[in-house]
């Protein structure tokens, strides 16, 4: 354990844990867009910046992204200076310029007193903020079906060659993790479509309800050694099955007792 100071208060933390985690544990609110607990920190959005210094630095200070700054003894952290306010506001302003229609960004910007972007808004802009959450989660899944392509302002998230991603298994993790809800999909008549690729949804063999795609189920079966039968019925029907099994046991016990 180490001692650090956050906004004047001494706080204990585990050496090497990320500063953002400690800050949040203290109930201090910092906006973030690219951080997610299921992902390694990436440092794309830069919203989580804080100011750090140490007594021996003699007043010298620097700005670091707290989501990937490992805690060390003696760190003195400020999370809400006027310069940090300016940094976060500018970042949100820039993001809003590129995605003026994003309600998520609008709401975050409002909190910094920004009702509209100071720059010329890109009315055709999509809402992608390049946090890489989608590509990173797909990598965690072990698929890396999509990736950032091109450079700079031209950069987009796309499947290889912009075609149906061969490695995609239709799990929707990318779509759900996206902080600005950019990635769209549809589920219609037991067919899921995402990244223009179509997937068969497994229909419950009792009631027909669909939960996940067949490709995803097969991946889980193979990767995690799960029995295939688990995926044949939906959760509702499986609960009823369980009730019936338990009931049968109880009735049998009663009969035996009689």
């Amino acid at each position: 354990m180490v001692n650090i100071t956050i906004n004047g208060k001494v706080v204990r933390a585990t050496e090497g844990e990320m500063l953002l985690d400690v800050i949040r544990r203290e109930g201090i609110n910092i906006p973030t867009l690219c951080q997610h607990d299921a992902l390694e920190p990436a440092g794309n959005c830069r919203l989580c910046m804080v100011e750090i210094t140490r007594t021996e630095w003699d007043g010298w200070k620097k700005y670091v992204t707290s989501c990937l700054y490992p805690v060390e003894e003696g760190l003195i952290v400020s999370t809400h200076t006027s310069e940090l306010h300016e940094i976060r506001k500018t970042i949100l302003d820039l993001l809003l310029a590129n995605s003026p229609h994003s309600d998520v960004l609008q709401k975050m910007a409002e909190e910094y007193g920004l009702h509209k972007t100071s720059y010329e808004p890109n009315l055709e802009g999509d809402n992608c903020i390049m946090c890489y959450a989608c590509t990173r989660i797909c990598e965690v899944l072990g698929k890396s079906a999509i990736s950032p392509v091109m450079r700079g302002h031209e950069k987009v998230i796309a499947p290889p060659f912009g075609e149906e991603p061969p490695d995609c298994i239709g799990c929707l993790a990318c779509a759900h993790i996206c902080p600005t809800n950019v990635i769209t999909w549809t589920d219609e008549n037991l067919t899921r479509t995402i990244w223009k690729k179509k997937f068969e949804l497994i229909a419950c063999e009792k009631c027909g309800k669909a939960t996940i795609s067949r490709d995803f189920a097969e991946y889980l079966i193979e990767k995690r050694g799960l029995p295939k039968e688990y995926f044949n019925t939906c959760d509702d029907c499986k609960r009823v099955e369980l009730a019936q099994k338990m009931g049968a046991l109880v009735d049998k016990a009663k009969e035996v007792a009689l």
């Binding site: 799990c171 929707l172 993790a173 759900h176 996940i212 029995p227 688990y230 995926f231």
Partner: peptide, 18 residues
């Protein structure tokens, strides 16, 4: 904070309890 709602557990639990 880690869950991405991919529904794997919902589909996998043999007792339908996720």
């Amino acid at each position: 904070e880690r869950c991405v709602k991919c529904m794997a557990c919902v589909a996998a639990c043999p007792f339908g309890c996720a």
